[in-house]
Simulated scan of single mutants.
Amino acid sequence: MLLEGKFTVVQMKANRRLRFNQPSRLPSSGDSGIEDERVLVLVFESISWDIHTLCSIATVSQRFCAIARRILWRRLCEHRAPVMISALSGGVPSGRIDGGWNALAKLMFFCGGGESTRYFNLSQPTPGHFVRESRFSKTSGRFFLPKNCRGDLLYVSDPCEHHAVGGDEHLGVFRGVFREFMRSKTRQCLVRRQAELEEKVRCPYCGGRVWSMTAARLVPKSAARRLGSRDGGLEFFVCVNGHLHGTCWLIPLSSDEEDGGAFDDEDSDDFYGSIL
């Protein structure tokens, strides 16, 4: 009831704004009130594209779900990370994203958690959750690319820290996304090596099948260094739509330790986002 009341007030404000900017009547399309797509866009603009509200609205009905998939998820991504989205879509206004905009929105603000795999053992799985803040960097992404694949564009997040049950170590969970993965050199390397898709692991963002970069021996040592992880304590997967997710054991660092590497330059295309 509280959400419904808040949403009604926001809708009334959006309608007043719409009448001010659009003195003529909306084209007749059989839609009215909150079900009109432009009204929905104005509503979410007024609440800064709150992802929790969008998730709730997308589950109200099939119509709302369809509008969210066609318009709202993309507008959320563009509002929260315009430079990163422009880079991923090639700057094309009508450009598409592999796996869908809803999957990209989830990847931007949801940590998928971690579970045991054949290369990575956990005493028990760590659950997924919304993150309070996100930072994605194409500078960090280059550390995850083999030398002959560094022409690819990959954004990778800072690791989300989880306390490991039954031990003093901390688990880092990270995620990322490729631009045009189907045309990437990374995918070409996987195909040339005849890497097999995993049977039991699925992408937590689009549900697609994944390759283990560890099994394919395509994990650069620079990736562990960038994350602050020990050698052999890192594993990550890439799905057929170019979504990356992985886990690592984090090494405790003293306050005077700094991360070094060949790509430690400032990057204006980094994305910093808050869920609040």
Results as ranks from 00 to 15, higher is better:
2 L>P: 10
16 R>H: 05
19 R>W: 03
19 R>H: 08
20 F>D: 11
22 Q>M: 11
23 P>M: 07
42 L>Q: 11
56 S>Q: 15
60 V>H: 07
67 I>Y: 05
68 A>T: 13
68 A>W: 08
70 R>T: 14
72 L>K: 14
78 E>F: 05
79 H>C: 08
85 I>E: 03
87 A>G: 02
87 A>R: 10
89 S>D: 11
93 P>V: 09
99 G>I: 01
101 W>V: 02
102 N>G: 13
104 L>S: 02
106 K>D: 01
107 L>F: 04
111 C>I: 02
113 G>K: 11
116 S>G: 13
119 Y>L: 06
119 Y>E: 09
121 N>V: 08
124 Q>K: 05
128 G>P: 00
128 G>Y: 00
129 H>G: 00
129 H>M: 03
130 F>N: 06
134 S>C: 01
135 R>C: 05
148 N>C: 11
148 N>G: 09
156 V>N: 08
164 A>S: 12
165 V>Y: 10
167 G>C: 05
169 E>C: 09
170 H>K: 14
171 L>M: 05
174 F>Q: 02
174 F>I: 07
179 R>F: 01
180 E>Q: 14
181 F>W: 03
183 R>W: 12
183 R>K: 15
185 K>G: 06
196 E>Y: 06
202 R>H: 12
208 G>W: 00
219 V>N: 10
220 P>T: 04
220 P>I: 03
254 S>F: 08
255 S>V: 12
255 S>N: 09
255 S>W: 12
256 D>E: 12
262 A>E: 13
265 D>S: 09
274 S>R: 15
274 S>N: 14
